[in-house]
């Protein structure tokens, strides 16, 4: 009751006062500390002669390195595409009503996720030891349409693609399955109630919505695969990493040459990240009320608004 019976003090008038936001001194201290740290790292990178930036620059665009880079990109592209196609099929199998398809798909993922990629790679390359010849014919009979020596069929490239693809398929199957499961059941019902055919239902209604859940993980996988291709060095396949190794074994400039490879991986990953941003934005259509501006649009808007204020300010 005291709140009601206390009108003794007249209400003060603050209308002429200026508002001052709260200060955050510790935020400034933190900023300064981190800035010093960043500067120290940059300084050491620039001034420590043992980084041998000159050597890095010399080899960065050398022909052998670039051709190694092309091989890396080729491996990534081929096993990435094949891996996701196979992964899509495995995901559909896993979601099917047939117990056999479900268990085959599950077993595939189980095996390829539980064995080291390095072992898989060596196994594929040495397939000729296990099976001398590979043939196509009618099972359980002597009929053969086609027969070939395993060693001629499984080159280093084939072993690399096979190993990376199958491994990638096992992981991407789970990612795609997760994406499909994330789509509301009501979407399928609505499509079925409208009589939309099954294939169209998957491609037009379910997959575009599943993509929102699939893409971030899928790009994680692709970026992992770019660097994962370096494991192919065990097959002496001259992709980027193996090429660099060959060079530094000859010149003994180990760290600068590893830096060359690293920088290239950073470049590829950066380009992929830009793709990821725009592809995710494409599939965000309708999921957000308004799409956020792209960095380019933000920059344009910044300059447009500032140009306007500058033009007005002299007056």
């Amino acid at each position: 009751m005291s709140t009601i019976t206390a009108p003794a003090v007249p209400a003060a008038d603050y209308s002429d006062y200026t508002l001052v936001p709260a200060r955050h001194p510790w935020r400034w201290v933190g900023t300064v500390v981190v800035a010093l740290g960043v500067a120290a790292v940059a300084w050491s990178l620039a001034t420590n002669p043992r980084w041998e930036w000159g050597v890095v620059a010399q080899w960065f665009t050398a022909q052998s390195v670039v051709s190694g880079l092309v091989e890396t990109l080729k491996l990534t592209a081929i096993s990435g595409v094949l891996g996701f196609v196979l992964g899509f099929i495995l995901a559909l199998m896993r979601l099917s009503a047939s117990p056999l398809l479900v268990s085959v798909s599950w077993t595939f993922s189980w095996i390829f996720r539980s064995t080291p990629l390095l072992v898989q790679m060596l196994l594929w390359y040495n397939l000729g030891y296990l099976y001398e010849k590979i043939s196509l014919g009618i099972p359980f009979t002597d009929v053969r349409f086609f027969e070939v020596q395993t060693t001629t069929l499984i080159s280093q490239f084939a072993a690399a693609v096979l190993g990376l693809t199958l491994n990638q398929a096992a992981y991407s199957a789970e990612i795609i399955r997760g994406g499909i499961l994330s789509v509301d059941q009501g979407q399928l019902e609505a499509a079925a109630a409208l009589g939309i055919p099954a294939w169209r239902r998957s491609t037009r209604i379910v997959l575009p919505q599943a993509m929102r859940a699939i893409l971030p993980n899928a790009f994680n996988e692709i970026i992992g695969l770019v660097k994962g291709t370096s494991i192919v060095y065990v097959l002496a396949y001259s992709e980027l990493f193996y090429t660099v190794q060959v060079i530094y074994n000859r010149t003994q400039q180990v760290l600068p040459l590893l830096l060359v490879a690293t920088l290239w991986y950073v470049v590829i990953t950066s380009v992929l990240s830009v793709f990821q941003y725009y592809i995710e934005r494409h599939y965000a259509k309708g999921a957000l009320r308004t799409l956020p501006l792209t960095p380019l649009q933000k920059a344009r808007k910044f300059f447009a608004t500032h140009a306007v204020t500058n033009a007005r300010s002299p007056r």
Partner: peptide
């Protein structure tokens, strides 16, 4: 078969409690 059921459904419109509009289409 599913195809024939889908065809029958084109004669029957349905409106759901939660609308079930396709969110990625206008």
């Amino acid at each position: 078969r599913e195809k024939d059921i889908l065809q029958q459904r084109t004669d029957i419109g349905m409106v759901f409690q939660n609308f079930n509009l396709f969110p990625h289409l206008t």
